[in-house]
Simulated assay, not measured.
Amino acid sequence: MPLSRTASLLSIYPHITSRDRLLLQLLDDHQVLTTGQIHRLLFTARRTCQIRLNELAALGLIERFRFSRDGGGSQPWHWTLGHNGHRFQAAAHQRPEPTARSSNQTVQRLSANPHLTHLVLTNEFFVRLSEHARRHDDARLDRWWSEQVTHNQFRKVTADGHGLWTAGGVTVGFFLETDTGSEALGSRVVAKLAKYGTFIRDSGGTRYPVLFWLGSEQREEHLHRLLPGQHTGVPVATATHAADPAARVWLARGTTSRVALTELPSDHGEALAANPNYGDGVFLP
């Protein structure tokens, strides 16, 4: 593509497809996605995905960065909005026009964020659900909210994300807690349940399960030993990062058999009635 990275947005429009716009919205909502995640969300062939990402980068719509691996080699490319991508999204949502400096600072702060791994892993959870939905006609990710949007809507909740998942005609809401192993389970992770208990009491009947997505079976077993008797009004289920979250991999508190997400207790209460479309983001085909 001959266009420069400083070309006007109007001159870039003929090169932006509906899939590109969907990608820009995803990056606007969730900050960063890897090449593999974008491939599984929006493309069939990985090579086609790589070529298109490079073309969008040449237009200044997206930027990429990656770090070296400690054992050698490199991590996958991480993609985020470039300056023209920020400009396009600002225009689409009637936000102030960003400067090139502010766009550059946003990319730099994101790439240096010590919680980047946690953010990418949280996004991976929803990517896997979306990937499953692409392959199964009876499944759908109806809602994928970031940490910030979740907090804006459910003020007492500080979850890493919130979603609505439909499979087999059943829709379940959930709050996601992504565990990278950096927090002590007893003093930090389990303590989060107190806020969920307050939310359930004050939310007009909304009662969504809290999903703890853990890095190992050992962490999962340890967490279950800490759970009995604490915050019993909060439905809790666990699975590991190695598991497909759309499969029958969720172990609820006090049970021994793993179930699917749609088999977990979920009561929407007033959460949907109050503002059903708030922050719903994009529809993933």
Rank of each mutant, 00 (worst) to 15 (best):
Y196P: 11
G197D: 12
R155T: 15
P228N: 01
T206W: 07
G168W: 12
G215C: 01
G233V: 13
I200K: 06
A194H: 11
T178Y: 00
G233W: 09
V249I: 11
V259F: 02
R258Y: 01
A252H: 12
D138T: 15
F174D: 08
I200P: 12
D160L: 06
W165I: 07
E183P: 03
L141C: 05
R253V: 10
H224K: 01
D179V: 02
L264M: 13
E183W: 01
A242S: 10
W213F: 10
R128V: 09
G205D: 04
Q230C: 08
D179L: 00
E183Y: 02
S257M: 04
Q153I: 15
R207S: 11
S203F: 05
L264R: 13
N123E: 14
E263W: 08
A242E: 04
K192E: 06
Y208E: 02
L193Q: 01
F212W: 04
A167N: 13
F174E: 02
N123A: 14
G204I: 03
E183Q: 04
R225V: 01
L141K: 07
F199T: 01
S257I: 08
A139H: 09
A194W: 05
V127L: 07
G204T: 02
A243S: 10
H132N: 12
F126S: 14
G169T: 09
S146I: 10
G186D: 11
D244V: 03
F212K: 03
S187G: 03
E147W: 09
A159Y: 07
G186T: 02
A139F: 06
V189A: 11
L176I: 12
E177D: 14
L264I: 13
A159L: 11
T262H: 10
G205E: 03
W145Y: 07
Q153T: 14
L227A: 03
W213S: 02
G168Q: 13
V170H: 12
S130N: 13
V259D: 02
V127G: 07
S203E: 04
A194E: 11
T256W: 09
R134H: 12
Y208H: 11
E131C: 11
F212I: 03
L223D: 00
G173C: 03
V210W: 10
V170A: 11
T198I: 13
T178Q: 01
L226T: 08
V149D: 13
K195W: 12
H241R: 00
T238M: 05
D137A: 15
